[in-house]
Amino acid sequence: MSDNIRATRGEPRVALITCAEMPGLDPDDRLLLPPLAQRGIRAEAAIWDDPDVDWAGYALAVLRSPWDYPTRRAEFVAWTRTVPRLANPADLVRWNTDKRYLRELASAGVPTVPTTWLGPDDDWTLPAEPGEYVVKPVVGAGSLDAGRYDLADAAQRELAGTHVKRLRAAGRWVMVQPYLSAVDTAGETGLLFFAGPDGLRFSHAVRKGPMLVGPDYGVDGLFRPEQITPRTPAAAELAVAERVLAALPSGPDRPLYARVDLIPGPDGAPVLVEVELTEPSLFLGHAPDAADRLADAIAARLD
């Protein structure tokens, strides 16, 4: 290991990658700093698009909160290819930052939320069936540019059509999904996995409450602050998550971390909402020793 990769006293340097709006890291990610220090690893926050950062000087660069990438995805993906030792790797970032990966997972037999995929030039009309639907772009994070619509309401039906047209006019792919009512009752289950000696291992899980409460009006989507509580996943949820990880294009051995978000479908069986391999919140503060388990995974990756 070269001298510039090691800090003083022989400590390896690890970059925790963030964005300019969060230069000091997300509070949850800061929980990782003490256990890394205890393992002799010097962790530093680094902004992904800062031209002065020497990425070659880090023994490992870990994507954590570069949450401004959705409006600059091409630039972000190109940047990942320049970082010598990036977790998760650049090819996974490219695959995972466009939600059309869900089509591949569905084709591989993973149960997913039924989705209509719309390119900028595709013909499409609103579903005739009443019910609630979610409209969102295939490249996005959180509730950015996402909306929830009751198509039985004439005003919301018109807003849903306008939302789709606005995204497509900007050259963006769009996904339209039925809103699963279990979001409001059971909530989503986010299952967190960190790398171990034999691939990704389950660490902990959380319940994620509903966020979207109404239409997107073209400025900011209407959503609630995310409500997070610890959760013990059911055996069926763990089984689906393992199927998701096994179907990743790289297999389950290369990622340093993964978050699999599931929700009960109409029949109560878990279906995949998304698998987060790029910059997911890992909710380290919601499970004992979660930060230590991730610190162990990083230390092993350095070895």
Rank of each mutant, 00 (worst) to 15 (best):
S2C: 00
S2T: 02
N4W: 04
R6K: 12
R6F: 14
T8R: 12
G10Y: 13
G10Q: 12
P12E: 02
L16P: 07
L16T: 08
L16V: 10
A20D: 08
E21I: 07
G24S: 13
L25M: 10
D26A: 04
D26I: 02
D29K: 00
L32E: 05
L33V: 14
L33M: 13
P35K: 12
L36N: 10
L36Y: 10
E44N: 01
I47G: 05
D50I: 02
D50L: 01
D50T: 02
P51S: 02
A56D: 13
A59Q: 09
L63G: 00
R64W: 10
P66W: 08
W67F: 13
W67I: 11
D68N: 12
R73W: 04
W79P: 00
R85M: 03
L86W: 12
L86C: 13
A87K: 06
A87E: 15
A87D: 12
A90Y: 09
T97V: 14
K99R: 13
K99N: 03
R100C: 04
L102H: 05
A108M: 03
G109T: 07
V110T: 00
V113M: 09
P114I: 10
P114N: 11
D122G: 02
D123E: 15
W124I: 06
E129M: 11
E129L: 13
E129G: 10
G131V: 05
E132R: 15
E132P: 01
Y133E: 00
V135S: 00
K136S: 02
G142K: 06
S143A: 15
D145P: 01
A146D: 05
A146G: 11
Y149F: 14
A152C: 08
A154N: 05
A154V: 13
A155F: 03
Q156I: 06
R157T: 06
G161N: 12
A169V: 08
A170N: 09
A170P: 04
M175L: 15
V176L: 15
Y179S: 04
Y179T: 04
L180F: 06
S181P: 07
A182M: 00
V183S: 00
T185G: 01
G187M: 04
E188C: 12
E188D: 15
E188P: 11
G190P: 01
L191F: 07
L192D: 01
R201E: 12
F202T: 01
H204R: 04
R207H: 05
P210V: 09
P210T: 10
Y217Q: 06
G218L: 08
V219P: 01
D220F: 09
G221T: 14
R224A: 11
P225Y: 03
E226Q: 15
E226P: 02
E226S: 13
A235K: 06
A236Y: 01
E237H: 02
V240P: 01
V240F: 01
A241Y: 00
A246S: 07
A247L: 05
P249E: 10
S250N: 06
P252M: 05
D253F: 04
P255K: 10
A258M: 05
A258Y: 03
A258W: 02
D261T: 07
I263F: 00
I263H: 00
P264G: 03
P264S: 03
P266V: 07
G268A: 05
G268N: 03
L272E: 08
E274M: 12
E274L: 11
E274K: 09
E279A: 09
S281K: 03
L284T: 10
A287W: 10
A287H: 15
A287E: 14
A290C: 10
R293H: 11
D296L: 11
A299T: 03
A300H: 11
D303Q: 15
